[in-house]
Design a protein around this nucleic acid. Structure first.
Lengths: 116, 116
DNA sequence: TTATATACCTAAGAATTGGAGGTATTCTCG
DNA sequence: CGAGAATACCTCCAATTCTTAGGTATATAA
């Protein structure tokens, strides 16, 4: 009954999204899923059932907007960061970093530096 | 409406608990809360409303057990790791580490090492 | 023509956490 | 002595977030 492998830490998904969108101008949903798989060599997967609600939430918060485009008969919906919301994205990522630092602090406590 | 600071990433709490209990023989609930506050200089807090259910779940899974003790008129309930379950604890922590590595991979991508 | 890949999405349920509340004892300060 | 803080346990409800499973549709490969 042990749940296994690549579950996402709840709460980290929006950070992942914002990070990728910060670096890439604009991506569409399916692309985000693939990219994460790529980066982590298939070990972490963002499911669409989690991704789309998260994207829509960020859109609802005014951080992302959308525009669709037809590519070879298929519709792609891009989710760029709203231009004047990049600061928001950065600060959210900073928060996540801060949290991860704290978590590291607990899980991998730095022995006090000892000058010898 | 931006939710702020020190919320815990869902899923990380049981790892925090197992880490502390791995290092400390046995701790009681209140102590765990205080310890986390200490380690993170007050920036991260484990709330009791989350802690106790998590402890009871780990107990239900057979990883922790309990024994109470009276100390200066107050009851302390210790939650040591069941002796032959230390392996479980270790492997769960390893899983968390693996996940955090993946997350770092996405949030702080290593530029490909370039030998010059 | 059937399956796979691409591409979007929703809905129901599980799981986890935060916040608020509740009980009880001891200690501290005025 | 009384009030409040600290110590110590706990539960319940609401909110959030994810997983699983499903649904639609087109293009390409077998």
């Amino acid at each position: 009954m042990n749940d296994l492998p690549q579950q996402i830490l709840k709460g980290s998904l929006s950070a992942i999204i914002l990070k990728l969108l910060s670096e890439n101008e604009a991506m569409y949903g399916y692309e985000i899923c693939q990219r994460v798989k790529e980066i982590t060599a298939g070990q972490m997967r963002v499911t669409e059932g989690a991704l789309y609600p998260a994207l829509h939430k960020l859109e609802g918060e005014g951080i992302l907007r959308t525009h669709t485009q037809q590519v070879e008969g298929r519709t792609r919906k891009y989710y760029p960061i709203v231009p004047d919301q990049h600061g928001q994205a950065v600060s959210r990522l900073a928060q996540m970093h801060a949290f991860l630092d704290q978590l590291q602090q607990v899980l991998n406590p730095q022995p006090n530096v000892r000058l010898t």
